[in-house]
Design a protein around this nucleic acid. Structure first.
Length: 510
DNA sequence: GTAGGGTTAG
């Protein structure tokens, strides 16, 4: 309710401001608003309502044939990109009569911010060939795309390049480099950059804290946060506390996390907790096995629980096999977020783990009835600066025959060492043998296997998955690390799993 | 960021 009100007020303010700007320009020039006026106004058209306004302005611009001006063009395409209308943004970009570094950066960052990282990278390459120039903003956007792809080698290339060019606003680039290295699984590099920064912003601290958090390094998160408080130069913000709290949760520091939250409530950190911080507490309690407490906590919160928040409690119910609360929460989730396939999967797995096969079938039927589409699972691995992407039961990779042959070998070898396929990870109604086949075809297993046959012995394997990884693949990765003496870095949708000698940094809770 | 593009986010 409040949010809606705020949105309306925001739109109203933009409108008023637009009119005032027009009026002021009329006074100043005694003629019409010029292209700069439109550019300024367009850049404030964000959010749903802003987008509608932006579209109105677009048609106004077309009527006045002002859209040929580069400033208007870049703000226009940025407005579309920020509204998630990347095709419209691209259309505007392609129709520009001239291009400069800002308009090129705007379209690249548009793709990157929507998570279309491969498209962003490809466009950057193409525009480079066509002779575009780049500056620090361009590289920051490219680094965002590389972080998303976990393209470590390419990221290093960009790093070398920006060092050679001695670009201005290096702190911004260093922030993106910290983030890039951490998302590519190389925290040592992140920390090295962080330690050598002559100056830091709150984003530098946040990027480093979030890096530790995603890697499950709770102690480092708390230590770094203490350092930040002791230095007392940069004030923590809402993102800082999110990083710290989720870091405590991922890193097994439940009690420290709860203390810090308590301090937030008492106003010590100068950041008031909002719904997402409450979400972290649910996660903290859930992880510690305090599922009932987490449930009570949600009931007493000063916020309406979001789907993400229920989802986190459902995850805890699954791990700690709390069927009573899990069932309640699961059905609640299916009500408020019926389109999210993940919810059906976790609820079904919860039923499966307690042997309630009738209910498993019920959930699966519900899923079919509502025609919920599961985002196809995809994993990739970087070998020799090339990203190799795999879909489940992939038949498209040029070395697929080798991959499948190796997979068969691994399956036999791992079973001898104690690997038991977790068939509850398969939702399809097929026989056991078929289930095992589906399970072995999971994309992260294909990527891991490809990594094993295409990298040198003992080289670490860095695999990225677009969804949350399943219990069985997690287990499979443990066997890879143990039997082949490989460090495995598995980055899933939420966080990192650093698996070494059969033990994962996540402590099997994710 | 000086009329347009940027870095952190359960």
């Amino acid at each position: 309710m409040n949010r809606l009100l705020l949105k309306w007020i925001g739109t109203l303010l933009i409108l008023i401001w637009f009119l005032v700007t027009l009026w002021l320009h009329d006074l100043a020039t005694v003629t019409e608003p010029n292209e700069f006026t439109f550019a300024t106004v367009l850049s404030s058209c964000t959010g749903t309502f802003g987008f509608e306004l932006g579209r109105q302005i677009h048609s106004l611009i077309i009527k006045r044939t002002l859209d040929t001006h580069i400033f208007v063009g870049s703000s226009l395409l940025d407005m579309y990109a920020k509204a998630g209308r990347i095709h419209e943004a691209r259309e505007v970009f392609e129709s520009l009569l001239e291009r400069d570094v800002v308009s090129c950066t705007a379209i690249i960052s548009g793709y990157a911010q929507l998570g279309l990282d491969a498209e962003a990278l490809e466009l950057f390459r193409r525009l480079n060939l066509e002779g575009m120039s780049s500056n620090y903003v361009t590289y920051a956007s490219v680094l965002t795309a590389l972080s998303g792809l976990a393209a470590l080698d390419l990221g290093k290339q960009v790093h070398n390049h920006v060092l050679r060019c001695k670009l201005p606003f290096y702190v911004v680039l260093q922030n993106s480099l910290i983030d890039m290295y951490s998302k590519c699984g190389n925290l040592i590099y992140s920390r090295r950059i962080f330690d050598n920064m002559p100056e830091r912003t709150v984003i530098s601290w946040n990027a480093m804290l979030v890096g530790y958090s995603k890697h499950g390094m709770g102690r480092e998160v708390v230590e770094l946060y203490k350092l930040m408080r002791n230095e007392n130069k940069i004030k923590p913000d809402s993102v800082t506390l999110l990083g710290v709290l989720s870091g405590c949760s991922h890193g097994g520091m439940e009690n420290v996390g709860l203390e810090i939250f308590e301090e937030m409530v008492n106003g010590k950190d100068g950041v008031k907790p909002d719904i997402e911080h409450y979400g972290c507490v649910v996660d903290l309690l859930g992880r510690a096995g305090r599922v009932e407490e987490a449930f009570e906590f949600i009931k007493k919160m000063p916020f309406e629980p979001t789907a993400a928040l229920w989802g986190s409690l459902l995850g805890a119910c699954k791990v700690h096999s709390n069927i009573d609360i899990g069932e309640f929460v699961g059905h609640r989730l299916l009500e408020i977020e019926p389109e999210n396939a993940g919810n059906y999967v976790i609820l079904s797995n919860l039923y499966a783990s307690t042997g309630r096969w009738e209910d498993v079938r019920m959930v699966r039927d519900l899923m079919l009835k509502k025609a919920v589409k599961k985002e196809p699972g995809r994993s990739w691995i970087e070998v020799d600066q090339t990203l190799h992407s795999f879909h489940a039961i992939d038949r498209s990779h040029p070395r697929r025959e080798e991959v499948f042959a190796k997979m068969k070998e691994l399956s036999i070898k791992f079973k001898e060492a104690g690997y038991v396929p977790d068939l509850s990870c398969v939702l399809h109604d097929v026989d056991e043998e078929q289930k095992e086949k589906i399970l072995l075809g999971h994309s992260e297993k294909l990527a891991l296997t490809f990594g094993l046959i295409s990298t040198s012995e003992r080289a670490p394997l860095r695999v990225i998955k677009n969804l949350r990884t399943c219990v069985d693949c997690h287990n499979f990765a443990k066997f890879v690390s143990k039997i082949y003496m490989r460090e495995v870095y598995l980055r899933d949708k939420n966080r990192f799993h650093h698996i070494s000698m059969g033990v994962c940094s996540c402590g099997d809770y994710w």
